[in-house]
């Protein structure tokens, strides 16, 4: 397939009087890792959430893996299986074990038997380095481990695209590395990824492209080196300056 795997055009989103996305275009090729940066309130998360229709765009089109996500005839639950999402606050199900978290959608959406789901679930936990924590509940895991279980929950469904919404922002600094490590290995396995994050070091090493968003629009985009070292816009320069001072 040569076309983009994610093709969003002219995406607008209003929350009441608030105009959060002002006609955003985003095309992502297969195996590409796109990084989205920008000040809080710039619409990065909303853009991500419009891609799997957790938010309903007010206007525009979103096509993922050839499926028109906004067509009312699209089976959205089926389509969402192809789009993994990882959240800032992990959002693991606290009443289930790590394995239970990973296998729920495998059993209920993908229709696997319990045995098949558990085999796939264990394999996914193995990939994030937590095979030995399968029987632990989220409350018994560190933040970094919880986020890795959340990643396993998504990749177990074998998505075509993974969306990361500030995956390390809620973590203690010493736990960030383990999550980035998992993301790096995902990247090496060829996963298409769209990452909203301020982990500049990771972006520099792993990203193919960096988008800078401000006030609901993409201000500029380019390879990480260009955006970080020679930003074309004053707003980008100011933002990157602020981030790097910390």
């Amino acid at each position: 397939m040569s076309g983009p795997i994610v093709d969003a055009r002219g995406v607008h989103k209003h929350f009441g009087a608030l105009h959060v996305l002002k006609g955003v275009d985003l095309r992502v090729a297969e195996r590409e890792l796109v990084f989205v940066i920008g000040p809080s309130g710039s619409g990065k998360s909303t853009l991500l959430r419009c891609l799997n229709r957790l938010e309903e765009p007010s206007a525009g089109s979103v096509v993922v893996d050839g499926i028109d996500m906004l067509d009312p005839r699209t089976d959205i639950n089926h389509a969402r299986q192809r789009i993994g999402m990882v959240f800032q606050s992990f959002n693991l199900y606290p009443h289930m074990t790590a394995l239970g978290n990973v296998t729920l959608a495998l059993r209920k959406v993908a229709g696997k038997s319990r045995a098949d789901a558990e085999a796939l679930g264990r394999a996914a936990l193995e990939r994030v380095g937590l095979a030995d924590r399968a029987g632990h509940t989220p409350g018994q895991l560190s933040g970094g481990q919880q986020q890795r279980v959340a990643i396993a929950r998504s990749i177990a469904l074998e998505p075509r695209v993974m969306l990361f919404d500030e995956p390390t922002s809620a973590l203690d600094p010493e736990l960030v590395g383990s999550v980035l490590e998992v993301m790096r290995s995902l990247r090496e396995s060829g996963m298409t990824m769209i990452v909203v994050s301020h982990e500049m070091g990771f972006a520099r090493n792993a990203a193919d492209r960096v988008l800078f968003m401000d006030e609901g629009a993409i201000v500029e985009e380019g390879p990480p080196a260009a955006i970080f070292e020679r930003p074309a816009h004053e707003r980008t320069r100011a933002f990157i300056g602020q981030i790097q001072r910390h």
Binding site: R80, Q81, M85, N91, Y93, A105, L157
Partner: peptide, 10 residues
């Protein structure tokens, strides 16, 4: 919790 579950297709 809703969002995580719905994002996996439930």
């Amino acid at each position: 919790q809703w969002e995580a579950a719905r994002s996996t297709g439930l």
